[in-house]
Design a protein around this nucleic acid. Structure first.
Length: 872
RNA sequence: GGGCGAUUAGCUCAGUUGGUUAGAGCGCCACGUUGACAUCGUGGAGGUCACUAGUUCGAGUCUAGUAUCGCCCACCA
């Protein structure tokens, strides 16, 4: 049995004083250390890393909140928990941050050199790691940070090579000359996902190409005239009557003079533009495919830095923008330009630097997606992987079903090196080892590794098992895979979540988690995305310092619904801090004059519910409410309705426990009925102790501190069991009767306020109790206190008053309360109020009557609904 | 071009199987420091649940359409 923490609870609630120390104690006690318990399935969350600069933003506070609530709830249910936290973005972020640093120093990456560059990244990564850990702690994350990995760490690194090799051996990874997205500034290939499309107002030029050996022309349209230098064909629809006679003949490319075959291809839409398309396989994805189908040459007219190359003839060395102007001018001068229109069309921009992305032919590594996508589609369809909220399932499926092969090589300086070595003899060696000593074919030692690195999401996709020791069959891997919940923002659904799913299935045989919980974006008060450049970022640590991480967490959880964007205001956090203060003070009330030894407890030391014989209506009412709450909250959390669960606890503690129950007990505690006093104390402690356990996942620090001061069992609320709802405590009669009294109290208070009775004045009441005589009599002392009706000034009547004068008449159910507020009553106001009330009552009677008169209603509505109406 | 979401009180938002009189926080008005709490209490004002039609005994909730805002996806030259 644990004794309550000695000493009085501090007078004021100061989050900063309890949060740090509690975190340390929990950590030292090993509560965050994952354990293997063969009889229980573990709860495993996948945690995204804090962002690239190592600074925390609200999104992280949000996912920590969700994951920590779920973890603590599971832990209280006796389930072993594990977080897989990782700094995975570091792969790409390292490069990004260092480049930004260089930019501020006026240096380019090339000037710094590769070796120094990599040193910089490592140095930065170390700082990053320690900063993240302290931030997680600030947010109250109950995870074991000794497991904190980067994908660049040796374990995950080896997993990356192994995964690459297995996919390669299976024929799913291939290297090929394909049209890819190229960022001329970053000088690297990009995957489709890393290209943002943005509508740009540009022009569409109609050109005419002469037909060889004829006076005819064929008209084609383009939005990028400079690429015409790389044209290798003109395509028309095979059934297009206008051009049928030209198929198989040649057009002459202006300026260059190249002969372009006129080919027929069904991809051409005869209704769009002129119905004829110039084909530039090297610089347009659509044209690339036409080129493949017709074996057309692809002529690359650009350099990697986005300037025109020698293929561009007179325009070589110009930027694409310059070349565009000059090409158009030349075409116009030569009479090949037909017309120009303004035209808005989407243009791809590099996600990281905003530069216009050029489609280019390049030799890159790809993953063939079809075989990986199919099972990943199946697990979503059959419910093996569930999405919260559900609508994201559609988004996910749509993407998976239309997926293209994934370009995984990047020409960056930081990342996992592609584990492929080239021998002088022409042999290509794909390996899961760090280095290759000699060529397996010729035995030579002059091997060079592919200079490219992998897309950072390749290693991220392996996260769920690479951190557990894969490819070794470790204990951790066996027990903790698959995980449970992936919690993240919907913005990386494709980048990360989707890839974890298909890699999980591919390498582990089953999906890495059963639930994907997606939260919305946290926005500022104006609804804008928080961003550094806008300067509207609210730093969670600043909020945490002011109001505590409990308040921040509670706000993030209760302010919105899953998957919905949320505007965060400081004011709201402040109100939730006030909620903490409220509970703090309620606990002080409970502790005042409490003899811990007199509280009945079970064998473990947990406070028991009071003995029923001694309880008052109020006790039975709050006990009933607590049990209902307990069951509801458990259910809501199990269904990921965390916000609703939090709001219910808030409502219970503040409105029911504090505003009504505590007030009710004051009468008993100040009275002289010792049995009732003991029952009230028992109830106060029992309800509060259990409520704190319900609230613990939402406000871990506050609840721990208060719980320690109450009689309780065990060392920490964090490992205390989640309360079981005890249906035996539910007393529906008590609920109905107590709520009748609440109505009566509200009515009297209202009447007093309207009649401007001084708050301190004690008044009298004449009561026609109807069916509530026992209730009113037993609650008379409480009623007296709450409604400020003088003791001994209750006058019970057997009959209703006839034509009462100078009294305020209150009807509550079938009872009537008359308040002789003579001299205090504003007659006109009272008349107005009564008139309004009569109107409302009449309306209601009419409505109810109508409903009951309606055969359809009485025959079709469920009996209990009809019954409810009849009662009125 | 396709898909999705939002629209509820002055503001920010809850409201998951359709069911009494639609809720909260903040703000506003009035009163109040009575021994847990002014980081508070009590009472009050404030809503045609965007619009239209439908299904139903009954719709904020389900269906279809309209409007406005927002997001995602997309190789139409």
């Amino acid at each position: 049995m644990t004794t309550p923490k000695p000493g009085e609870l501090a007078r004021t609630y100061e989050p900063n004083k309890i949060e740090g120390p509690w975190y340390d104690r929990w950590f030292d006690a090993g509560y965050f250390t994952p354990t293997i318990n063969e009889s229980k399935k573990p709860f495993v969350v996948i945690m995204p890393p804090p962002n690239v600069t190592g600074e925390l933003h609200m999104g992280h506070a949000l996912f920590v909140a969700v994951e920590d609530i779920l973890s603590r709830w599971h832990r209280m249910h006796g389930t072993p928990t594990l977080w897989l936290p990782g700094a995975d973005h570091a792969g790409i972020a390292g490069q990004w941050v260092v480049e930004r640093e260089l930019a501020t120093k006026g240096m380019t990456r090339q000037e710094l050199g590769r070796e120094l560059f990599l040193d910089h990244v490592w140095e930065w990564m170390d700082r990053y790691r320690s900063r993240i850990l302290s931030q997680l702690r600030t947010l109250g994350a109950s995870c074991d940070w000794t497991r904190f990995h980067f994908t660049m760490d040796p374990g995950p690194s080896r997993a990356v090579r192994t995964a690459f090799k297995r996919l390669y051996d299976k024929g799913l990874i291939y290297r090929g000359e394909r049209l890819i997205n190229w960022c001329p500034r970053c000088m690297t290939a990009l995957s489709d996902l890393e290209v943002d499309h943005e509508d740009v107002v540009g022009s569409i030029w109609t050109l005419r190409y002469p037909i060889a050996d004829s006076d005819e022309f064929i008209e084609v349209a383009t939005t990028r005239p400079e690429t015409m230098l790389g044209d290798t064909a003109v395509a028309v629809h095979p059934d297009d009557e206008r051009y049928k006679h030209l198929i198989g003949r040649f057009a002459i490319l202006p300026i260059v003079g190249r002969q372009l075959p006129i080919v027929a291809d069904a991809a051409v839409d005869p209704a769009f533009g002129t119905g004829a398309v110039k084909v530039t396989p090297a610089h347009d994805p659509n044209d690339f495919e036409i080129g493949q189908r017709h074996s057309l040459p692809a002529i690359n007219v650009m350099n990697l830095d986005g300037t025109m190359n020698d293929e561009a003839g007179p325009f070589a060395g110009q930027t694409t923008q310059e070349a565009r102007v000059n090409v158009v001018a030349r075409l116009e001068a030569d009479g090949f330009l037909v017309e120009v229109h303004e035209h808005t069309h989407p243009v791809g921009h590099c996600q990281r630097c905003g530069t216009i992305v050029e489609p280019m032919i390049s030799k890159q590594w790809f993953i063939e997606m079809q075989p990986l996508a199919e099972p990943a589609i199946a697990v979503a369809n059959d419910g093996t992987v569930r999405f919260v909220p559900e609508r994201f399932k559609g988004t996910y499926l749509h993407w998976m079903e239309n997926i293209h092969d994934w370009c995984i090589s990047r020409q960056l300086w930081w990342g996992h090196r592609i584990p492929v070595w080239y021998c002088d003899c022409g042999e290509i060696v794909v390996t899961d080892q760090e280095t290759v000593e000699s060529c397996p074919k010729c035995g030579g030692h002059t091997l060079t590794q592919d200079p490219d690195v992998l897309d950072t999401w390749f290693s991220s996709g392996l996260w769920t098992f690479s951190t557990l020791g894969w490819p070794d069959e470790t204990e951790d891997l066996r027990y903790f895979y698959p995980g449970s919940v992936m919690e993240t923002g919907y913005d990386i659904l494709f980048f990360w979540v989707a890839r974890m799913i298909f890699f999980g299935i591919e390498f582990m045989g089953e999906a890495p988690f059963h639930t994907v919980y997606l939260h919305g974006t946290v926005r500022d008060e104006l609804g804008q995305r928080m961003s550094k450049t806008k300067g509207n970022v609210i730093d969670p640590t600043v909020i945490t310092q002011a109001f505590g991480s409990d308040a921040l967490r509670f706000t993030l959880i209760t302010a919105g619904a899953p998957g919905a964007d949320m505007k965060l205001s400081e004011q709201r956090v402040e109100s939730n801090r006030n909620f903490g203060t409220k509970i703090w003070n309620a606990t002080r009330f409970v502790l005042r004059g409490l003899e811990p030894a007199s509280i009945a407890r079970d064998a473990d030391g947990t406070p028991l519910a009071p003995t029923r014989a001694d309880t008052t209506l109020a006790d039975r009412w709050i006990l009933s409410k607590l049990e209902t709450l307990t069951a509801d909250v458990d259910d809501l959390i199990a269904n990921f309705q965390l916000g609703e669960a939090g709001r219910r606890i808030y409502e219970f503690l503040w409105s029911e426990y504090c505003d009504w129950y505590i007030e009710s007990t004051k009468v008993v505690l100040n009275g002289d009925d010792e049995a009732k006093q003991a029952a009230a104390r028992q109830t106060l402690v029992y309800v509060l102790e259990r409520s704190l356990r319900l609230l613990h996942p939402f406000m871990p620090f506050l609840t721990e501190e208060l719980w320690q001061h109450l009689p309780h069992a065990g060392d920490s609320i964090m490992v205390a069991p989640w309360p079981d709802a005890d249906q035996g405590n539910i007393d529906l009669v008590a609920v109905a009767e107590y709520e009748f009294m609440m109505d009566a109290v509200r009515a009297v208070r209202n009447a007093r306020a309207e009649s401007a009775v001084e708050a301190g004045t004690w008044i009298s009441a004449m009561i026609y109790p109807g069916s509530h005589l026992t209730t009113i009599q037993s609650l008379e002392p409480v009623f007296s206190l709450l409604a400020r009706i003088g003791k001994g000034r209750f006058e019970y009547r057997d009959e209703q008053l006839e034509a009462p004068k100078a009294v305020v008449t209150l009807v509550i159910d079938d009872a009537i309360i008359y308040l002789p507020l003579a001299g205090m009553v504003d007659l006109d106001a009272e008349r107005e109020r009564m008139t309004k009330e009569i109107e409302q009552t009449e309306e209601e009677i009419a409505r109810t009557g109508q409903l009951l008169a309606n055969d359809n209603f009485t025959s079709r509505a469920p009996a209990e609904v009809v019954e409810r109406q009849r009662e009125r």
